[in-house]
């Protein structure tokens, strides 16, 4: 069961797939999914961005929506903004992949 959940987050890191978890060293597992948070944020903004982008393209310029937003296609703009932020997080994960802290730190504390 636990192995499945591990795979959920792995694909985002694939470009840097010498993933520390693969080395088999007994590192603190908390550290392992630490930076996965960046991928989770990217995932959230990616999905939200795509949905809003589609909403913006489909109905963003309907008079009813334009009346609400005061004339901008808010779904489209926000969708694009979210995709850009999501892409920046992906870039961050890709450029600065997870580094495992030196083993003594993680191991010493759990006596």
């Amino acid at each position: 069961m636990t192995d499945e959940s591990r795979h959920d987050h792995q694909p985002d890191n694939d470009p840097e797939s010498d993933d520390p978890t693969g080395t088999g060293t007994p590192i603190s597992t908390t550290a392992t999914n630490l930076f996965d948070l960046r991928s989770v944020i990217a995932l959230l903004f990616g999905v939200y961005g795509i949905v809003l982008l589609i909403m913006g393209l489909v109905s963003g310029n309907d008079p009813e929506n334009l009346a609400k937003t005061g004339g901008t296609n808010l779904n489209l703009d926000t969708g694009i903004g979210m995709l850009v932020i999501g892409a920046l997080f992906v870039l961050w994960v890709w450029l600065r992949p997870l580094r495992v802290p030196a083993a003594p730190d993680g191991g010493a504390e759990r006596s």
């Binding site: 591990r6 959920d8 603190s28 908390t30 996965d36 802290p101 759990r110």
Partner: peptide, 20 residues
């Protein structure tokens, strides 16, 4: 659910194992 697999001691559970 994903965080659960990384929880192995009470310090992990309550203070995130001082790793953030």
């Amino acid at each position: 659910y994903a965080a659960r697999r990384s929880v192995s001691s009470s310090l992990d559970f309550l203070l995130s194992g001082r790793s953030m």
